[in-house]
Design a protein around this nucleic acid. Structure first.
Length: 475
RNA sequence: GGCCUGUUGGUGAAGCGGUUAACACACAUGCCUUUCACGCAUGGAUUCAUGGGUUCAAAUCCCGUACAGGUCACCA
């Protein structure tokens, strides 16, 4: 059997959306799973849509996901060039050949005269002589596909199964534009054949035009590849994820603090499901288990909540040093200078889902927020202004005498021994302390951790401030 | 409108003629706990868009209907 060769063929629009990336990922996984090759090809045949730097977005995105291509632009390969705008002479040659084979014809119809209803293209009837004459007269033709009216075309899609179409319902689309560039409809067939692509993986918007491509393959006498059409990734029930809707691109997600591994893991599950119950997979594991059979036919809705969760899983499973190196970017200068970053990282790792959540989570270290006194009242902890004040006063006394601030253990033991002595429940005592130290209802870590990180001076200052606040409430 | 395709809880989904209709996220509740989170446990689809058929038996097969998406560009 032939070596499996798949390709990812984006057009450089400057925006890598999730659906595209998923297509790339599937193509990559199918290739690697079968020990095949994965090819990158740039489809830049629409001169009007060229965007500066768009190619880089593609390279960078694949790179971030650690998807490596075997052949492609920059890297080269035996069937290059891999950028369509550099292959113009190839398309021209094959277009002419297709005309000779009866699979295409010149067309002189004007843009705006309804030629889209081209089921019967009048130019088809032009004789060779007439065509030549028109060209001599300076008319610039396009080359259109020629499709006979009789019979059916049928093909088998690996995910959708048998698809059958009536030939006479197929449009005779433009293959080569008047500017000399091919359309997608032609370039993809020629390139896929020339590059020996035997598995075509792409969005199912091409499902309806695939029969036309197959006719071209047949006219040339080329072998038709296997097709794997993918249902789209949706924003909601009605619309696709898209740039126009302002939906997040891969890069946006990265900037928002999502890890590439987590994004990759999440999007592979949009429209594909593995055999077992596990959902967390590395790229290498995916290569091992990816199976076309698990691809589903219906569209999947992108759910940021689940991505968040998955991102959290990746963060929690990370080595602490790795986490710290990633999290550091989100620590303010003040924090990096005044707080033990290693200990801080340990505390927040478990409760970080997205890296960008970090600043807000830890901002109280730098400046105590102007908090509401009601925070001291907590039903579950059985605290009220009165016993909170007591707790703070005692905490102040104890901590003021405490000298081993370098030892988290000792600080911990001290603070946890207090409630016993005064006949308070642990939470009853520690809740007000934490509130005084953080000014927040929820914090990463408890009172002990925060005190430890804050240091003696700041801790005492904040407790004193808390006591004052509560005294104010007495009056 | 023609043609093509899809439809299982809020979301991703398993299932492929006989199951109590997996599992994960989210949600709710409880446990744990110095808060939150983490972790653990429990709960929710009387039913697989809908109506008919085939069958001893249907989410699973067939037909119609509804809804949704795609395509019908010198865009990909």
């Amino acid at each position: 059997m032939d070596k499996v060769r798949t390709r990812f063929a984006p057009s450089p629009t400057g925006y890598m959306h999730i659906g595209n990336l998923r297509t790339a990922l599937y193509a990559y996984l199918i290739a690697r799973h079968n020990n095949g090759n994965f090819i990158l090809r740039i489809e830049d045949t629409d001169q009007k849509r060229l965007v500066n730097g768009a190619m880089d977005v593609i390279y960078e995105s694949l790179d971030a996901m650690n998807i490596k291509y075997d052949e492609g632009p920059k890297k080269g390969g035996p069937y290059g060039p891999y950028v369509q705008s550099e292959r113009l002479s190839i398309y021209k040659k094959y277009a002419k050949k297709l005309i000779d084979l009866g699979g295409a014809h010149y067309c002189f119809c004007k843009n705006d005269d309804g030629t889209s209803q081209n089921i019967k293209d009048p130019c088809k009837l032009l004789s060779k002589k007439e065509v030549l004459k028109k060209i001599e007269d300076g008319e610039v033709p396009v080359i259109r596909q020629t499709i006979s009216d009789d019979g059916f075309v049928e093909f088998e899609d690996e995910v959708y199964g048998k698809i059958k179409n009536e030939k006479k319902l197929l449009d005779e689309g433009v293959l080569l534009k008047s500017d000399g560039f091919p359309t997608y409809n032609f370039a993809n067939v020629v390139d896929d054949h020339l590059m020996h692509i035997n598995y075509v993986i792409r969005g199912n918007e091409y499902l309806s035009s695939t029969p036309k491509y197959n006719i071209i393959y047949n006219d040339f006498g080329w072998k038709i590849p296997k097709y794997i059409h993918l249902a789209p990734v949706m924003k909601d029930e009605h619309s696709k994820l898209s740039k126009r809707n302002g939906d997040a691109s891969f890069n946006d997600l990265l900037n928002k603090g999502y890890l590439p591994e987590a994004i990759l893991n999440y999007i592979v599950l949009l429209g594909w499901s593995p055999k077992g119950e596990n959902e967390i997979y590395s790229l290498n594991e995916l290569i091992k288990i990816f199976d076309v059979k698990g691809i589903s036919k219906s569209p999947a809705i992108f759910d940021i909540e689940k991505l968040k969760w998955m991102n959290g899983v990746y963060i929690r499973n990370m080595d602490i040093n790795h986490f710290m190196s990633l999290a550091k970017k989100y620590y303010s200068k003040w924090i990096q200078k005044n707080i033990d970053v290693y200990e801080l990282s340990k505390i927040i790792q478990k409760r970080t889902e997205v890296l960008t959540d970090i600043p807000e989570m830890i901002d109280f270290f730098e400046t105590l927020p102007d908090y509401m006194i009601d925070l001291y009242e907590n039903k579950k902890m059985k605290t009220n202004f009165d016993n909170a004040k007591q707790s703070l006063i005692i905490a102040y006394k104890q901590l003021n005498q405490f000298r081993d601030w370098n030892s988290f253990e000792k600080l911990h033991d001290l603070l946890l021994s207090v409630p016993n002595k005064i006949n308070f429940k642990t939470g009853q005592f520690l809740w007000p302390v934490r509130v005084a130290l953080s000014g927040k209802e929820k914090t990463p870590g408890g009172a002990v951790e925060i005190a430890y990180l804050l240091g003696k001076e700041e801790t005492l200052k904040r407790i004193k401030f808390g006591i004052k606040k509560l005294e104010g409430a007495d009056k």
